[in-house]
Amino acid sequence: MPEFLADLLNQNAIFTATTVGHYWDGLVTTVQLVFLSLVIGLLLAVPLAILRTVKNPFVSGPVWLYTYIFRGTPLLIQLYIIYYGIGQIDGIQDTFWWDIFREPFYPALLAFTLNTAAYTTEIIRGALVATPHGEIEAAQAYGMSWLLRMRRIILPSAFRRALQAYSNEVIFMLHASAIASVVTIVDLTGAARDIYSRFYAPFVAFIAVAVIYMALTFLIVYCFRRLERRMLRHLKPLNQ
């Protein structure tokens, strides 16, 4: 931080260079956590969504069960189970798993990833199912195999349809990440709670963090709008 900025901040009772640094660390943690869980979640969700649409119940059943469990329970409960539950398994401290699960970051990442993957699976499945029959029949008439059909016709059009619903999921995930602070992670909310309990200034501490969340949300909304404009151009009326 530049000297003059630090001097300016240190004149303020609450937003000193230390607390602003604390918020910054929190912002970095939140962005890391949300970005990683969304990317891994999306990578998991695409194959799962395809499996979910398969007619064979032995294939689609387990995926249905997975999404049912993770959409049917609160994320906070999932985080508690993964963070505190894993620590209670006898002997886990002696295995290499403990190097991963000792830190609160990875249990939180796991919980968030599994949760967002479940929701995203259902979003993509909905888009896959809604593919117009005509497109599939036309592809079949061209003699495309299942794989080629999936790659060239069904998935690209499904992704376009899923885009708007998925932008909601991204924003929800950002806001849901606030619960990471209950397992000692100092994310944005954790930083706000630390500053709140140090200065007993709930308005200042939480409004500051709310503004940061809003700025992040704005950024996400903006990116998705750019993406939609590009990907959904063919759906726009000509005179607009």
Binding site: Y84, G87, Q88, W98, R102, P104, V182, T184
Partner: peptide
């Protein structure tokens, strides 16, 4: 309570 659990599990 949460702190006790984390000391218990060596976190």
């Amino acid at each position: 309570d949460d702190m006790v659990l984390d000391l218990e599990s060596d976190r």
